[in-house]
């Protein structure tokens, strides 16, 4: 299994390490020619969604990424990646990739002092560690399925081939979420 990791900015190397740990192959997508290769799944990592969204446009990657997702390629967005996937962002008119019918709230837990670590149930996996760094949450899941909640807020959801997580599975010891993604 070969997974492309969007490597424009942020914590992409951490995802690559997890994928290799799970026995998958990982490569970095930094420009147009990278995404023209053949691969089986896409990861949109954590970082700053404003930066990654802007670079997706400027490096001519927005359209091919969107097409891949609409064609049914499995995609996992973590933190900033969740915001990129969301069709709506609360109190913000920006739409980045916008292929998943959810509403994301940016910086939903405040500034860095609001960042936290916890454990919670993830549907289909069980209890897993979750790290939230200046994280968003999903304010409205619409037709997507809720996979995890923390304090009554949706922090993981799936809509067919799209998986959106408010936390960072690439930062904790468990590889369970990456294994889940590889089976999608």
């Amino acid at each position: 299994m070969k997974i492309g990791v969007l490597a424009l900015q942020g914590a992409f190397i951490e995802h690559e390490k997890k994928l290799i740990e799970c026995g998958a192959e990982a490569f970095e997508i930094r420009q147009r020619r990278d995404i023209e290769r053949s691969f089986d799944g896409l990861i949109l990592p954590g970082g700053e969604s404003t930066v990654i969204g802007k670079l997706l446009h400027e490096l001519d990657l927005m359209q091919p990424v969107r097409e891949r997702i609409l064609d049914g390629m499995p995609v996992m967005g973590t933190c900033a990646g969740l915001i990129l996937l969301a069709e709506h962002i609360a109190e913000d008119d920006t739409v980045h990739i916008g292929t998943m019918g959810i509403t994301a709230r940016r910086n939903a837990y405040g500034r860095q002092l609001g960042s936290f670590h916890t454990t919670a149930q993830f549907k289909g996996i069980g209890e897993i560690p979750m790290t939230f760094i200046r994280a968003p949450y999903i304010e409205d899941v619409s037709t997507a399925e809720i996979l995890a909640e923390v304090d009554g807020k949706t922090v993981a959801a799936r809509e067919n081939n799209q998986l959106a997580l408010a936390f960072h599975p690439e930062l904790d010891d468990s590889a369970a979420v990456h294994e889940y993604f590889l089976k999608m």
Partner: peptide, 17 residues
């Protein structure tokens, strides 16, 4: 310790930027 880890992790999110 937990807070220090979270703080190192914020820096990880800034990488490549």
């Amino acid at each position: 310790q937990n807070r220090y880890k979270l703080n190192k992790e914020l820096a990880q999110m800034l990488k490549g930027g």
